[in-house]
């Protein structure tokens, strides 16, 4: 039982990281109908921004955190104007390829500045974790889980109970209709990119003390987060969260009870199973094509 509880905590912790990044995928997909393959690199860039301000410059952690998130908001603006906006009238394929190109550019730019060696970023807390009976709770994972829960509540409130949230929802559902109702579609898409970049950045900053800061950290998480969005139902906020958590728990238990080397395989096995038997995901609605 001790083993199960320990694995469950770790699985939920890792799953929460996937969920945070998956949330960014979903928000951009809902607003623009394209998948942003640079979402993982947003996490990586934010983590490196923390290294710049909190480690290299020695600024207070909270200040570095705010500046890093501010930097991510700016990156969201640049990304929207430089990658999405020029291609907004094209089909989804050129935009997806542009996001892949942008992810390569971001990764190599950071590589050129910082080199390939991973960096260390301290966590928020002095205490690395607490022992609760037989289970060790890593303080950073506790924080990640808490932030994920807070974001779920915030997203619900924001999208369902604020005018801006409703405008964003309207834009994601039907751009032409939203435009006819006087909503500035380009502004809404800009806001979505900013929010997604900040979310991705938040995930990167939170996970950096656990996984270290490296060029690959974003792509590794993003791949799982992408699988999580498909499992949860592409375009569904609750689905991204549930998909992420489920993936974290499945791969942790799979590694413990079946095979460690094939840990990543379990995540993608579940993904394939969903694509075959339930392509719309857990929360997605079935879309039928008319003959």
């Amino acid at each position: 039982m001790d083993l199960v509880l320990q694995l469950l905590f770790t699985g939920i912790g890792i799953g929460a990281v996937y969920a945070l990044v998956a949330l960014g995928f979903v928000l951009i997909f809902r607003a623009t109908n394209v998948v942003n393959f640079a979402q993982g690199e947003f996490s990586m860039v934010a983590a490196y921004l923390m290294v710049v301000f909190a480690v290299d410059l020695g600024w207070p952690y909270w200040l570095s955190f705010l500046i890093a998130l501010g930097g991510m908001a700016l990156l969201g603006v640049i990304f929207n104007l430089g990658v999405y906006y020029p291609l907004r009238h094209r089909s989804f394929l050129p935009v997806i390829i542009a996001t892949i190109g942008a992810s390569i550019l971001l990764a190599n730019s950071v590589l050129a500045i910082y080199g390939p060696q991973p960096q260390v970023l301290q966590g928020w807390f002095e205490t690395p974790g607490i022992q609760l009976g037989p289970v060790y709770l890593d303080s950073q994972y506790l924080l990640i889980i808490a932030v994920t829960i807070a974001l779920v509540i915030f997203n619900y409130w924001f999208f369902e109970h604020t005018l801006l949230g409703k405008k964003l929802q309207a834009t994601s559902q039907d751009k032409e209709m939203a435009s006819l109702l006087g909503i500035s579609v380009s502004t809404m898409i800009m806001i979505t990119f900013i929010y997604s970049a900040v979310l991705g950045g938040l995930a990167g900053i939170l996970v950096a003390p656990v996984l270290f800061v490296s060029i690959q950290m974003g792509s590794t998480i993003a791949l799982k987060a992408f699988a999580a969005t498909i499992i949860g139902g592409f375009g569904d906020v609750a689905g991204a969260i549930i998909g992420g958590l489920a993936l974290g728990v499945i791969e942790t238990f799979g590694a413990a009870y079946i095979s460690v080397p094939y840990k990543d395989g379990f995540a993608f096995l579940v993904l394939i199973a969903f694509l075959v038997f339930r392509p719309q995901g857990i929360f997605g609605e079935r879309v039928a094509e008319k003959a």
């Binding site: 694995l7 942790t252 590694a255 840990k263």
Partner: peptide, 17 residues
């Protein structure tokens, strides 16, 4: 005798083993 895949984000199952 335990193998693991490179770039693993979590080693909890390995440590418990």
């Amino acid at each position: 005798d335990q193998g693991y895949a490179n770039q693993s984000q979590d080693f909890t199952p390995v440590v418990l083993a």
